[in-house]
Design a protein around this nucleic acid. Sequence first.
DNA 1: GAGATTAACTAACATTTGTTAGTTTTGTTG
DNA 2: CAACAAAACTAACAAATGTTAGTTAATCTC
Lengths: 193, 193
Amino acid sequence: MLSRRELIIRSAGKLFREKGYAATSMRDLAREVGVEAPSLYNHFSSKQALLRDICFGMADEFFQAFKNAVENKTTCTDKLISAGKEHVRVIYNHLEASVVFFEEWIFLEGSELNRFKRLRKNYQQKFKALIEEGVNCNEFRKIDARVATFTYLSSLNATHELMMHSRNINPDELAEQIAEIFIKGISRRLFHH
Amino acid sequence: MLSRRELIIRSAGKLFREKGYAATSMRDLAREVGVEAPSLYNHFSSKQALLRDICFGMADEFFQAFKNAVENKTTCTDKLISAGKEHVRVIYNHLEASVVFFEEWIFLEGSELNRFKRLRKNYQQKFKALIEEGVNCNEFRKIDARVATFTYLSSLNATHELMMHSRNINPDELAEQIAEIFIKGISRRLFHH
DNA sequence: GAGATTAACTAACATTTGTTAGTTTTGTTG
DNA sequence: CAACAAAACTAACAAATGTTAGTTAATCTC
């Protein structure tokens, strides 16, 4: 059973994704939940608080997934593939919220905005570190780690668009294919993996 | 010299990128231009018309750039690299408007929204066709062209974020690096190109 | 079943929104 | 300089916004 609070968050995620945070009114959200707008304030202190919960909730998910992904893996290649898979799996499991996480975080206000940016940078940094390590130990070619990180993550992030439009896509396979292209692209030898 | 109309479009691009279409008011835009809000209506019939001009103007740019990119190129590899470079160059030359093109088009209304989606699909199709051709003539591995297209384009599109934050990046070099990773990733032999 | 908590409701608020009407200023052309 | 067009202005509109106040219904605890 879905708690009231959970239902509101989920509905907010749906609407924020469809119409964007700014274009979604509390009355829109209330209609979706099946309630009058002021009732929402019994569960959340503000519209901003809803966005905050979604964005930072998703941040937690991504960090947790990364942690699980890399443990028990040895090579940078394996770690990057696994992290990519887990990343896409999080998106798949939270299709609506993850779009909010990717595209609506700009509407976070004040210190929360900065906190969010810091978290995001931190997460990217984890991927970058793996790539740099791979370069240093000759697992990968001498590439610009910044550009490579960026290339990999933007491909992974964009999967939400694919999965949104055809829900029966297998996220593991999708991530696998992206990872394969990327890893081959930065590897020393072909058929390395 | 910047025509009045041009100045308004450019300011709208800047604000739509910074705050999003929905969260940018005509009064915000007027302040940016240095004028009162109703004066804007001497140049544009509505807020929506501004968005329309930006989005479809950018679509033209991308299509034109692609056309220029592939002519006089023979292999699929060369075409894909060149198209990638031109694509990133368009983004670089219109940093603000291109972000609007990528992220704010959802606020297009009615038939314009559908027309835009069609254009976008059409453009992606051009890349996909190149990749499929490359697979058929054994230039590339047997990969899923849909996923590969998607991987390449999302990396290219995301460059706006990088270039926005450090304007002195060389767009050609950036595109070159991304293309190199991607092409190696889908090629038959390493050091093929 | 009394009392207390939770969560819904209605009514209303001050602002902000895109846009129109009508008027005045500015700049160009004969 | 007269005439005209372009583009600015002020005032105002109806609608929508996030949120608060105050109240009532439902649910749980003892």
